[in-house]
Design a protein around this nucleic acid. Structure first.
Lengths: 211, 211
DNA sequence: TAGATTGTTAATCGATTAACAATC
DNA sequence: TAGATTGTTAATCGATTAACAATC
């Protein structure tokens, strides 16, 4: 909100949110930073510092009310929003993603799917009909989605992104195995499956070497 | 290799690898840390520090030979390995993943797929027949895969992981929207799509607020 | 040789942890 | 009131950046 919160803190927020959701589900009413820290494997100091970037949500001698804190983190993350999103590229990953992901609970609403495969155009996915990219300009300028999920081949991802930016898109979830180079006012989250595999491969090699 | 390299450095390695691969493809023979830093949007100091965790791969006055450095990073990451991997859960994401991912180039070899949906058992995916989880113990103990990709419902992921650990699995790529609690000698990489969406949502909200 | 650029040490910056006064 | 636990300041630790001598 007021201050600039560091990326490290932001990155941890979804995890807090996840843990608090689980506590809420199991009927836990209050929790201290100490107890939460033990469950999550972090320090209590870090939890308190992180939360205090956004305000004082606890109470001395009591701790944090789980339901209240859960709601506050939800608000900080902006999960009550309904940012319109489109999916570009309904191949394996893109297709699976739309079926599996609960966009509504993460602040988004999927309103359109595009793919240039004639076989896919017209197909129904999640109550949405796959559209021809030819109609993308018209659709985006009319519906004004905020975000696009990019699940297109790496060779074309930057071109597609530039096109969408020119139509007014301001955020991307990038699944393509390529760097997305964009202006400063465009926000990007990358999911590079290949990078995760490589990191895992490194960790395994390391563990092996230690024996 | 010798020293303990920090997680920050490890996390950057795949990105270096990606950039060097692109340079290699475009026929660039040598590159200085300065030029690479400008392309990647990091400092030249950081690149040199990172690389020197593993050895001196450059040459004063010349820079780095792209092909050589690419090969060295590949070796550091262990990408020449062929760690056997299995996929547990051939639902949307799991299925898509196996079709899309070039495991061989990331140090892995997919040798088995399991799913408890009778409709899927017997199905062919990527030259592999989907197997019944009943046969998992026998298969894992015989083939000794190192890694398992978990793409099962969050409610059962920890149970499945524990089972696989007891059969000898030492590494997981976790797609389930849950924390994986494991022993210290098991390595885990998480891909939490939901977390990425939430971070993106936060960034969009922030950008909005600034206007 | 002169110029360029590394490898590496030292300085800075930021993030994490510890400590404790405030207070429920 | 006494005990517990926060919010917050101060101390520590680690990561990033800057600087420069070594050297190709």
């Amino acid at each position: 909100m007021e201050k600039n919160v560091s990326a490290s803190v932001i990155n941890r927020l979804p995890r807090y949110y996840r843990y608090l959701g689980e506590l809420l589900n199991s009927g836990v009413e209050r929790i201290s930073s100490k107890e939460l820290s033990e469950r999550m494997g972090v320090t209590a100091s870090q939890i308190r510092q992180d939360l205090n970037c956004f305000g004082g949500f606890g109470q001395q001698g009591y701790g944090y009310n789980v339901e209240y804190l859960y709601g506050e983190i939800s608000a900080i993350l902006g999960l009550n929003s309904k940012y319109k999103a489109i999916l570009v590229g309904a191949g394996n990953i893109g297709h699976a993603l739309t079926r599996n992901t609960n966009f509504e609970k993460r602040g988004f609403e999927l309103i359109g799917i595009f793919d240039n495969d004639p076989q896919k155009i017209g197909m129904e996915i999640r109550n949405l009909t796959v559209m021809d990219p030819k109609n993308m300009k018209e659709f985006v300028e009319r519906e004004k989605p905020t975000m696009a999920i990019l699940s297109v081949p790496r060779a074309v991802v930057n071109q597609v992104a530039q096109e969408l930016i020119s139509y007014g898109i301001k955020a991307f979830l990038n699944f393509s195995y390529a760097e997305l180079s964009t202006n400063d006012d465009v926000v990007v989250e990358n999911i590079h499956l290949g990078d995760s595999l490589m990191r895992l491969c490194y960790k395994i090699s390391e563990a092996d070497a230690k024996k």
